[in-house]
Amino acid sequence: MKIIPEILLDDYKKNFPKGLEDKFDALHDAEISNDSFSFYTSVASVFSSKIEGEEIELDSYVKHKRFGIEFLPDYTKKIDDLYNAYSFAKINSLNKTSIAEAHKLLGKHIVTKHQQGKHRIHNMFVTTDDGRIEYVAALPHQVNEEMNAFYEDVESLLKMELIFQEVFYYASLIHLVFVKIHPWDDGNGRTGRLLEKWFLSEKLGEKTWFVQSEKNYYQNHQLYYSNLRRLGLEYESLDYAKAMPFLEMLPKSLLL
């Protein structure tokens, strides 16, 4: 691997909760879903958006998406965009081109058209609600090189034979490494969570889309952000040896 670290893999597999593969195999779609509506895609879109501060409730969104109940466009449009990106991922292979296309969909009402699916060319800081800098992402001149390494690693992983625990390990790291590079002007968190599930689906099949990882991250969003911060303040000095608490969150989604 060029950029996705493997240093924690052995410990991760040793401590992986038992019985989760059976729980994964038992996943099934919700009765309310039909050919034109996916309940669990709605769950993913709503809770991934709520992590980013969107004021939307799952019940309202299901009424909008499944039953056609109208709300003000500002209430649903970003979630609709993310829903479309998940729908796109379900029928397209994971690669550099499709990742950019997914960002064009989910970023439709987040960034301007010329920024959609394009790597940023500006400095990027993640700030707290009170304006403090809590993370300095990869510098603009690093982004293309780091992302090319990321795309190559994803391509390599997709070709590998991986056991169940390894799939979860690498899916979490795809999410983590992506958000640490922070390649877009906005929509990085939404994309990272989508990529995690997209990789799982490539390896484990359709049941992946029923995993409620976004809901788990939202319900534990303070821990989610705390675990992201553990690695360090600046991209140049990230310590992936401290990533285990973050990596352990995804498997717990199977317990919901």
Rank of each mutant, 00 (worst) to 15 (best):
V136K: 15
L20S: 10
F37N: 07
F16T: 01
F37D: 08
E196H: 10
L162M: 12
D81W: 08
K215N: 06
F168A: 03
F210P: 01
L233C: 00
G117I: 04
K108C: 09
T128M: 02
P183N: 09
L27H: 08
A241M: 11
D25E: 15
Y75E: 15
E236R: 15
A243W: 10
F16V: 04
F88K: 05
R193Q: 07
D129G: 15
D80I: 13
Q116C: 08
A30F: 12
R230F: 10
G131R: 10
E31V: 13
F178N: 02
Y86S: 05
S226A: 14
N92P: 02
Y169W: 10
D186E: 14
D11F: 06
D129C: 08
G232A: 04
L255Q: 15
N92Q: 08
S201Y: 10
S226V: 02
S201W: 04
V154Q: 01
V62H: 08
N92V: 05
P251Y: 01
R120Y: 09
K13M: 12
A243G: 08
I121D: 15
R190T: 11
D186R: 03
F210L: 06
E101A: 11
D22W: 07
L58Q: 04
R190N: 10
K113H: 05
T41E: 12
A102N: 06
D25S: 14
S213V: 08
K96G: 07
D153A: 13
S98L: 00
F67R: 13
I91G: 05
D59A: 14
S213F: 13
R132Y: 11
A30K: 12
L247V: 01
K207Y: 09
P5A: 12
K23P: 00
E57K: 13
E55T: 08
Q115W: 08
H221M: 11
D35Y: 11
K23A: 12
R193E: 06
Y170T: 00
G68V: 14
G205H: 09
V177Y: 04
E196M: 11
E145N: 13
S156N: 03
G232M: 01
S87G: 05
S213N: 13
Q165C: 06
F210K: 03
V179M: 04
K104P: 01
Y86A: 04
L58Y: 10
H119V: 02
L255E: 15
D239E: 13
Y169P: 02
H221Q: 14
K203A: 01
V143W: 07
K2F: 12
L200K: 00
Y151C: 05
M160V: 00
T208K: 03
D239M: 02
H28F: 08
L139R: 14
E101W: 03
E155P: 02
D11I: 08
K180L: 04
Y40T: 09
D22L: 13
M147R: 10
E54M: 07
T97P: 00
M147F: 03
D35S: 14
L106F: 13
Y40A: 06
K65F: 06
E146I: 00
L255A: 07
F125L: 14
D186F: 09
K118S: 09
A171I: 07
